[in-house]
């Protein structure tokens, strides 16, 4: 079996086809570098300063600081007209007015970043006290927003997994394979194993590249903080750290990618023709994606496409694991139907 698997890999990565994978990885890294940008309407540095200030504080101290800062900024902004009138009427000196304007500009430059922090404060009111920890969370938040349906992974599966079965038919080698001792069930299982491995490795490498880019550009600090403390993740019910959450989501996506690879094997084993397999497979993956916005409905829960998005709000590896079992069963049934005399085969 090991030899058969080795030869199946030779077929898949012959004539330097591994270079295609290298090219996909390079494109993916480039895309990640260009896409993982903190384009915000507030000052990231100000936000970072605030979070750094809050980092050492207890929850009550942090709340007091935020409320006081809110009061401070709002009062400075609100006093703008009044201070201008006072200055115009001579009630305050130019030095006082200049001093005010300095504090006004400072508050004005901080207000949007502070509003973002305040949202987090509001989010925290819904959380258990132990999760109310302030830290610089923008890179994690960005990573969360970046996670989604990954066309690089999808393309890799299409490129390398669909031909695993189709190639035998297009090259007209089936008749030679199928009259060989291990040319039926064992060869099929070798092919399924290859698809499984391609799905797993491609997903691991490509998703790991996202982590790598994130770490390189923004650092991966505060990975041991609770996920609920990251803005936008307050609704998470699982008691996990930021790192565990993102590793979990990525693991889930890797499992879904294995499902996608096994589905590609099944589709191409049945259809046997590359272009038609590609159309059917793309439909199987992409159509449910269109109907699963916000993870609503059954398709959002069980579809491979939504699974590849990795945005299930429940932190579960069970669903993709069950899907893998399902698709392995589908492949087994296909082999069993194709070679019904299997009971006597080996």
């Amino acid at each position: 079996m090991t030899k058969l698997i080795r030869f199946e890999f030779m077929k898949v990565f012959n004539r330097g086809k591994w270079l295609f994978f290298a090219a996909i990885l390079f494109a993916k890294l480039l895309f990640a570098f260009l896409s993982l940008n903190l384009k915000t309407d507030f000052s990231v540095e100000v936000y970072r300063e605030y979070t750094n200030q809050l980092a050492g504080m207890s929850e009550s101290e942090a709340s007091e600081f935020i409320l006081a800062e809110s009061e401070r900024i709002n009062s400075i902004i609100a006093a703008s007209n009044e201070m201008e009138e006072k200055y115009m009427s001579g009630e305050i000196s130019i030095d006082d007015y200049k001093k005010y304007r300095t504090s006004y500009y400072d508050a004005n430059s901080k207000i949007k970043a502070f509003e973002e922090l305040y949202k987090r404060y509001e989010q925290f009111q819904e959380l258990e006290p132990k999760n109310r920890i302030y830290f610089y969370d923008l890179s994690w938040n960005l990573f969360g927003r970046y996670l989604g349906f990954d066309f690089f992974v999808f393309f890799t599966v299409v490129l390398f997994c669909i031909p695993v079965f189709c190639r035998e038919h297009s090259d007209n080698v089936c008749c030679l394979n199928e009259v060989s001792k291990f040319g039926r069930r064992k060869l099929c299982f070798a092919k399924i194993t290859v698809c499984f491995t391609i799905g797993a490795v491609a997903a691991l490498v490509l998703y790991a590249s996202d982590f790598a880019v994130l770490a390189l550009r923004f650092g991966m600090d505060f990975a041991d903080m609770p996920i609920q403390a990251v803005i936008g993740y307050g609704a998470m019910t699982d008691d996990v750290t930021v790192l565990t959450f993102f590793v979990g989501i990525t693991a889930s996506k890797v499992l879904w990618c294995i499902c996608a690879a096994l589905a590609a094997a099944a589709v191409s084993a049945v259809i046997k023709e590359y272009v038609l397999s590609l159309i059917v497979y793309a439909s199987v993956i992409l159509i449910p994606l269109q109907f699963s916005a916000g993870e609503q409905g059954m398709l959002g829960k069980i579809g491979i496409g939504p699974g590849l998005q990795g945005n299930f709000y429940h932190f579960s590896l069970l669903v993709p694991a069950l899907n893998i079992v399902l698709w392995l069963a589908v492949n087994y049934v296909i082999v069993a139907i194709k070679y019904p005399n299997k009971a006597h085969s080996h």
Binding site: D171, C175, L176, V179, K342
Partner: peptide
Amino acid sequence: GARFREIYGYMPQSYGLYPS
């Protein structure tokens, strides 16, 4: 099944091989 294929050799009229 496989026991027969073990002692069987076949060259079809038309067949392909892996070109690479």
